[in-house]
């Protein structure tokens, strides 16, 4: 627990003034999910991913997606070793504890789906051979929402693979001034000491799974999900899988925030990042899903 607190504050030292985003990133990690950062270039996506992976103490890989990338470039290839007269698997960059998948929407759907499959299954199958991915396995993907030329936006059904989707956004004036004055973030990262290790992260994940969820809180979660299904501006409500994901994420968030129970604040904190990319609004309603989610949070009673 203490190590988790240290890791969190260490990441916050690098990503200034974005405590909520850091909390969400750790929540996604501890809930066993993956994080999608949708943001403009240069706001610190890569820095966040790097800081996260460094604080975990595991190995990390960065994959810069391009449109000429093939699945093998991610998962790895089998190469015929003439000396041994057999195929040998060369693991791709996905074999790491933390994978930063940069500009995921630049890759072709074929390549994207290779990544997404690996994320869901936590294993890779090449030439009929299955290779498990390391534990913990955490993908931080980024995509640029504005630069649409030559991109392949992730289909909605695939967005479901990410537990949370969020954006970092511009820093505030004070934080921006600190950024300008202080030494380069990359220097800070180079001096980063890991606070956790992969085994510790697994323990924390188990701890999060066991966090008690009370009846009133389950009522609240059910009410929220029911509200998405009844809302007129949405094409469809949240699925039961999303409900499960909400409980998992809320538990992880509570743990990240040092609580020994699952609090309604946790639900409120993760709900927008969890629901927005899973919900699609009716075009005629003139709303976007973020506004609808805000509205639902503002009107659903907390029992």
């Amino acid at each position: 627990m203490a190590a988790l607190g240290r890791a969190r504050s260490a990441v916050n030292q690098v990503i200034l003034g974005k405590a909520e985003v850091v909390d969400l990133a750790f929540s996604a990690l501890l809930a066993g999910g993956h994080l999608l950062l949708e943001d403009l270039p240069g706001v610190g996506k890569t820095t966040l991913a790097q800081a996260m992976s460094l604080s975990l103490g595991g190995d990390w890989q960065r994959i810069q997606f391009t449109n000429d990338m093939l699945p093998a470039d991610i998962v790895g290839v089998s190469i015929f070793q003439q000396a041994q007269e057999q195929f040998e698997f060369r693991p791709g960059p996905i074999f790491a504890n933390v994978v930063l998948a940069d500009e995921i929407n630049r890759a072709t759907p074929r390549t994207q789906s290779a990544l997404l499959e690996a994320m869901a299954e936590r294993q890779v199958t090449v030439d009929g051979q299955t290779f498990p991915l390391p534990e913990p396995f955490f993908v931080i993907a980024t995509q640029n929402p504005l630069d649409l030329v030559g991109t392949y936006p992730l289909p909605d059904s695939q967005l479901d693979r990410f537990l949370l989707r969020t954006s970092i956004g511009y820093p505030s004036a004070t934080e921006e001034r600190r950024l300008l004055v202080e030494p380069d973030r990359r220097d800070l990262l180079s001096r980063f000491e890991p606070s956790l290790d992969p085994g510790g992260v697994s323990d924390l994940m188990a701890l999060a799974t066991d966090l008690p969820v009370s009846e009133p809180l389950l009522d609240y979660i059910q009410n929220l999900i029911a509200a998405t299904r009844q809302h007129g501006g949405l094409k469809a409500g949240l699925s039961p899988r999303a409900g499960l994901a909400l409980v998992r994420a809320a538990r992880a968030w509570s743990l990240v925030n040092g609580l020994n129970y699952c609090a309604p604040e946790a639900v409120k904190a993760v709900f927008p990042s969890l629901a927005t990319h899973r919900l699609e609004t009716r075009p005629e309603s003139g709303l976007d899903s973020a506004a609808v989610v805000e509205e639902i949070l503002g009107t659903t009673r907390v029992p």
Binding site: A263, E265, T299, R301, V302
Partner: peptide, 8 residues
């Protein structure tokens, strides 16, 4: 507010 948690 009905939608407020106790701590909020």
């Amino acid at each position: 507010q009905p939608s407020e948690t106790p701590r909020e």
